[in-house]
């Protein structure tokens, strides 16, 4: 069991890192501008990340599994470790990076190392989604901006009452954002461990059961929650006060838009509903919440006449799409080689 936990540690570290950084995308402005207390944001964020991961985490993980089913736990550890190291190193070098893209690169690295073919269809779906994610988020925030502006113009809510409504909206949207983050991004944290999950299914008192994968997701989500509680406060303060200086209502639009995108790319229930009504569907893929947020901010910028937009961020996102998987894939290949030849651990079967 101790060995299993050691092998899971890289995924748990990814989870911690996700909680520390990506929770700030959801609650950063609200906490940074003191619209919400950090404690409230952390508790609500953690609860809904866990619910999202355990209840709806399977969809995006399934697509990741199609790309490459890492079938030895030492291999899973190395793939997750490579992704985590890529995120850590590229963040330190101040390069644009996303966990989603790092994990995909690391899986392809494993495919190359183990000689397994990479499913081109799955890869195309995933890469297309990366591009669609910020664009869709920008479209959502662009539309929401005008809708909310119109509503505010017609409702004439007093400045004091508006403050209460905005706080409530930020809390509710934050909960939805955390749910979507858990549902979409748990695949990044624990996706590579699914084929080798060491946990048995659990049934409690006959009415509550958790599958092996859900237990894995629960552990990952707890790691995210620990990340939120231990490290996200300083990131939230940075996001809220310096990088993205947004008004609380603009922050609400940004969080709602990016959360909707994450939800769309994670919800199996929505996909089932669309299928049952013969409507077009899209792949469930882990996407970058940071890129969704940047897309949403650009959407608001465009809605406000497009002035003062720093279009270099688009270039940075594009660079992240290429550089992150390349770096992560190369590192994964090297680390897998070290794990197999130096530590004598089987990294594939």
């Amino acid at each position: 069991m101790a060995l299993i936990l050691i092998f899971l540690s890289s995924g748990l570290f990814l989870g911690w890192s996700l909680g520390a950084n990506d929770a700030a995308n959801i609650f950063g402005t609200a906490v940074g501008t003191k619209m919400l207390r950090f404690g409230t944001a952390a508790i609500v964020g953690s609860i809904f990340v866990i619910i999202g991961a355990v209840v709806s985490g399977a969809g995006a993980s399934h697509t990741l599994g199609k790309l490459g089913a890492v079938n030895a736990i030492a291999g899973s550890f190395t793939v997750a470790f490579s992704a985590a190291f890529t995120v850590f190193w590229m963040t330190k070098m101040k390069l644009p990076v996303s966990t989603s893209q790092a994990v995909v690169g690391a899986i392809i690295g494993w495919n190359l190392f183990s000689g397994k073919p990479t499913d081109a269809t799955a890869l195309t779906k995933i890469v297309t989604t990366w591009v669609v994610c910020p664009v869709l988020s920008a479209i959502f925030s662009f539309i929401l901006f005008f809708i909310i502006k119109k509503i505010l113009k017609h409702t004439r809510i007093s400045i004091i009452r508006m403050d209460s409504y905005t706080r409530a909206a930020l809390l509710i949207t934050g909960a939805f954002g955390a749910y979507s983050l858990g549902a979409n991004n748990i695949a990044n944290v624990m996706g590579v461990f699914i084929p080798v999950s060491p946990f048995p299914d659990i049934h409690i008192a006959g009415f509550f059961s958790l599958s092996s994968v859900q237990i894995l997701f629960l552990l990952g989500a707890l790691a995210i929650a620990v990340g939120i509680f231990t490290y996200s406060k300083r990131v939230m303060m940075t996001v809220g006060n310096s990088i993205f200086k947004l008004s609380p209502i603009a922050a609400f639009i940004v969080v709602l838009s990016s959360s909707l995108v994450l939800f769309l790319f994670a919800s199996t229930a929505l996909q089932t509903w669309l299928l049952s009504h013969h409507l077009p569907t899209w792949p469930l893929v882990p996407v970058s919440s940071s890129q969704a947020v940047v897309g949403a901010i650009l959407g608001i910028g465009l809605a406000k006449s497009g002035r003062n937009i720093d279009f270099s961020v688009i270039g940075k996102i594009g660079m992240g799409w290429v550089a992150t998987p390349l770096v992560s894939g190369a590192l994964s290949f090297v680390f897998l080689s070290i794990m197999q030849n130096l530590f004598m651990q089987p990294v594939f079967i």
């Binding site: 007093s158 004091i160 706080r167």
Partner: peptide
């Protein structure tokens, strides 16, 4: 949340 709206009502009343 209800407390928040009560506070808003009270301040609105005071400002008026």
């Amino acid at each position: 949340m209800g407390l928040l709206f009560n506070q808003a009502s009270q301040i609105e009343g005071d400002v008026a």
